[in-house]
Simulated assay, not measured.
Amino acid sequence: MLIYHGSFCVIQKPKIEYSRDKLNFGKGFYVTPLMEQAEAWVARFKRTGRNAIVNCYEYDENKVCQNYRIKKFKEYDDEWLDFIIACRNGDLIYQEYDVVEGGIANDKVFNTVELFMDGLISKYEALGRLKYQQPNYQICFINQEVINQYLLFKGSSEK
């Protein structure tokens, strides 16, 4: 499968060490199988006058599934919400996995998550709001070995 990473530079050999902490699925290298999502990610670089680069990689998910621990969230549900909040709060729960996949907590979704985190709405209400959101999809590579062995850089394009 082809997957994409939006950045301000070409990234032929991704390194997790350059990732920020406390992201949706923890510290890792984030990609998406949706080109339009990657293009939306790089739009923020363009708005600030920086380069907007979409990097493309080949990823053999079947081989990774045989040898590594993968967590897939199929929808915005109770488990997804707990996981996102734990990771955003700095909990290292994500380190139980090599790869985590699922819906992205974009600005619209994260507004609901923040309302819940701040105690302004209940978990029940948060999940009720999230069920109407169309999830975008992200894949987070947490284990550098998976990247080194199973991501093949195919090229990049400036947007």
Rank of each mutant, 00 (worst) to 15 (best):
Y137G: 01
N136A: 13
Q95W: 06
K154E: 13
K72T: 15
H5N: 06
S19I: 11
E158M: 13
G119L: 05
S156G: 09
N106P: 04
K159A: 11
V31C: 12
E125S: 08
H5A: 09
L127G: 01
Y97L: 05
N55V: 15
C87W: 03
C56K: 14
F8Y: 09
K13H: 13
L151I: 06
I70N: 06
R129Q: 15
D77K: 02
A126Y: 05
I139T: 13
G49K: 08
K46T: 12
E39I: 14
A52I: 10
N106Q: 08
G26A: 02
D77N: 15
D118E: 12
D78Y: 07
P135H: 03
D118V: 06
E36C: 10
S19D: 09
E158C: 11
L2K: 13
W41T: 10
G28V: 03
Q37T: 14
V109M: 07
W80R: 00
E61Y: 10
F45P: 11
W80F: 02
G6H: 11
K27V: 04
D91L: 04
F73G: 00
Q149N: 12
Q95R: 15
G90S: 10
Q37S: 09
V31N: 03
K13A: 02
F141C: 06
I85N: 05
C9A: 12
N51S: 15
A38C: 07
Y4C: 06
G28Q: 01
P33H: 04
D98F: 03
F153G: 10
E145N: 11
E145D: 13
K74R: 10
F153Q: 05
N143S: 13
D91M: 07
R20S: 12
D118R: 12
V109N: 02
G128D: 05
M35T: 12
V42F: 09
G102R: 01
I11Y: 02
K154Y: 09
D82S: 13
T32A: 03
Y59V: 03
N24Q: 00
D98W: 02
E58F: 14
A40E: 14
C56N: 08
G49I: 08
Y137E: 09
L34R: 05
N67W: 08
